[in-house]
Design a protein around this nucleic acid. Structure first.
Length: 429
RNA sequence: GUGACCGUAGCUCAGUUGGUUAGAGCACCUGGUUGUGGUCCAGGGGGUCGGGGGUUCGAAUCCCCUCGGUCACCCCA
């Protein structure tokens, strides 16, 4: 019988784990410095929790099961319902605004493909209890802070921003009635995936004629520079600022945060489900070779939906899979992302073997990352090869002299005698 | 869940129109050059050719099923 990892899952060998830690550390570091506090919840929830937000249709997309007490449960496919539940439960006692982050692993029962697996890690940041546009801008700023932290530039990745209200105004103006607004959003979202005639047919069902649809389609395909909102206003025939107020206010905040260069407006960004209420955005690699690196937006009604008070909210999620693909594409994988040993201790003579454990123990107790040779050979050349092989900063060569050792810097090749009691002190300098 | 392509050592692959004990490089392990590092030399472990069934005297090679991978659709919370 052959046992293999389930479809769409990954094994994390030491190198893979080191890489994952590199990402998780970056996510945490950036979150913390932007004022977010870490939270987490259970890895499985009651199935109903996910139905509240997404309806019955969600069930086929997630891993669910029944426990021995006949309870219907599901492995978390996203963190937002858990977050909404947690916030709703303690809403009255939590200091505002609530700024939380987490880095959960999530599971979705989808067919794996590039950038999409059945188990993945996702960075979530959410700001609740704070009104737009400041919260939206800070959320986007934090995402950009992370991208920059990993070495990405505005020439390589962009935040594409849209606003439900703006798109709704446009749709309304060209003749879409309120009750067909959701259908219009869906059609907009799918415009690149359906055949042209089907698109026209769908538009006709919304009461739109062909020239109007064409003009609208064209408008939504263009991207507008974040520093030139007026251009967008002219293009959509809305010289009157009131219809793009929200976007204009967000634009001012993004400029104030100094990240306008990373942002552009793209009214074609719809973001699936109907629960987004205002700003929506995605982070994309510019060439379009990869799928969206992150997605998010404002969801002002969700906490209420989960039994809490009315509370404004904005958040985003960024998965490890696409992010890693992009960093590989852009050659931004650092040469060293695993913890580097401070020292590698080796015995160059039979007489030195007995000293090994004591020296290693002493250095480790002083807080240093120390490895040693387990080999029987006393061939210093071979042992040094192992030392450099594990990327150690220093090699410590023990000989028959029980008072001193040779401390060799493996980066420079420089070597000198150091008293064994002084080794830790010397290396920390 | 639907469709298309793919599947030989840990990794990258070779394997002649189906023909005898399935190979290379890298990686890994051991030893040597009688104490200074990503060399060099020698040796070694590791594959029931994804798995199962069929055709054939004979299958890594042809056919079917299944599992997994890749890509598109669905979906993207």
């Amino acid at each position: 019988m052959r046992l293999q990892a389930p479809k769409g899952t990954r094994d994390f060998y030491p190198d893979d784990c080191a890489w994952r830690s590199y990402l998780l550390d970056a996510w945490r570091r950036v979150s913390v410095r932007n004022g977010f506090e870490q939270v987490d919840g259970p890895i499985f929830e009651t199935l109903d929790l996910y139905k509240v937000k997404s309806g019955e249709g969600i069930v086929s997309e997630l891993f669910h099961f029944t426990d021995r007490g006949e309870r219907e449960l599901a492995i978390r496919p996203e963190f937002t319902p858990t977050l909404a539940r947690m916030v709703a439960e303690k809403a009255s006692s939590l200091p505002r605004p609530i700024k939380w982050f987490c880095t959960p692993n999530l599971c979705r029962a989808e067919r794996p493909q590039r950038g999409r697996l059945r188990e993945f890690w996702q960075w979530n940041i959410d700001i609740l209890g704070l009104e737009p546009p400041l919260a939206d801008a800070e959320c986007i700023f934090t995402a950009i802070d992370l991208l920059a932290e990993l070495g990405l530039t505005p020439e390589q990745v962009r935040v594409r921003i849209s606003h439900r209200a703006t798109v709704k105004h446009i749709l309304s103006r060209i003749g879409v009635s309120d009750d067909k607004m959701l259908d219009a959003f869906n059609l907009l979202d799918r415009r690149d995936k359906v055949p042209p005639d089907e698109f026209t047919k769908g538009a006709a069902a919304l009461g739109l004629d062909e020239p109007t649809v064409a003009r609208f389609d064209q408008t939504c395909r263009r991207r507008y520079d974040a520093n030139d909102l007026a251009h967008l206003r002219r293009s959509i025939g809305m010289e009157d600022d009131s219809d793009t107020d929200e976007l204009g206010a967000l634009n001012e905040q993004l400029k104030a945060f100094g990240v306008a260069d990373w942002c552009e407006y793209d009214l074609g960004i719809v973001r699936g489900l109907a629960y987004y209420t205002g700003t929506v955005f995605e982070v994309h690699e510019v060439s379009g070779a990869e799928r969206a690196m992150a997605g998010g937006g404002r969801y002002d009604q969700l906490i209420e939906l989960f039994g809490g008070p009315s509370m404004p909210a904005v958040g985003l999620g960024m998965g490890d899979v696409v992010l890693t693909n992009v960093l590989i594409d852009k050659k931004l994988i650092p040469s060293q992302y695993a913890p580097r040993p401070d020292a590698f201790v080796l015995a160059a003579s039979e007489g030195a073997v007995a000293q090994l454990p004591g020296v290693v123990a002493s250095l480790r107790r002083s807080g240093l990352h120390v490895r040693m040779s387990y080999k029987a050979t006393r061939n210093v050349g071979k042992l040094l090869k192992d030392a450099s092989g594990c990327k150690a900063r220093y090699a410590i060569i023990l000989s028959d002299d029980t008072d001193a050792a040779q401390l060799k810097c493996l980066d420079t090749g420089e070597q000198r005698d150091v008293a064994i009691t002084q080794l830790a002190k010397e290396m920390k300098q």
